[in-house]
Computed example of a mutant assay.
Amino acid sequence: MVTASLSDSDFRVLAGLMAGPHGRPVSPGDPARLLVVFSCADAEVGRAAAQLYAEGLVRHIVFSGGIGKDSGGLAGLGISEAAFLASVAIADGLPPTAVTLEESACNGRENAVRSLTLAAEKHLVGDGDRVAGLAPTQRSRRLFEELRYQAAALRCPGVVDAGFASGAIDPAAADIRAELLGELRGLHEMHDRSPQRIFRLDEFQSGGTHFGLVRRAGLG
Rank of each mutant, 00 (worst) to 15 (best):
V113N: 07
R142V: 14
G68N: 14
S104G: 14
R59D: 08
T100C: 06
A105V: 13
R142T: 13
R141S: 08
C106W: 05
G128M: 09
L74G: 15
Y149S: 06
L74K: 07
A132S: 01
Y149M: 01
L134C: 07
Q138Y: 15
L101N: 02
R155P: 11
E103R: 13
P95V: 11
L147E: 12
L85P: 12
L147A: 15
D129Y: 04
I67C: 10
G93A: 12
A173D: 15
A120W: 06
D127V: 14
I67H: 10
L134W: 01
D127H: 14
F144S: 06
G56C: 07
L101M: 12
T97D: 13
I169E: 05
T100H: 04
E145K: 01
A174V: 14
I67N: 09
A91H: 03
G56N: 06
L143N: 03
V62A: 04
S64T: 02
R109T: 08
T97W: 00
G93T: 09
C156L: 03
V125T: 12
L101C: 11
A89N: 12
K69D: 11
L101R: 01
G65A: 06
I169A: 06
P136L: 01
V113R: 15
I67V: 15
R148Y: 08
G163R: 02
S87C: 08
P171W: 02
E145Q: 11
T97K: 04
E103D: 10
L77V: 00
N111Q: 06
I67D: 11
D161W: 08
C106V: 15
G65E: 04
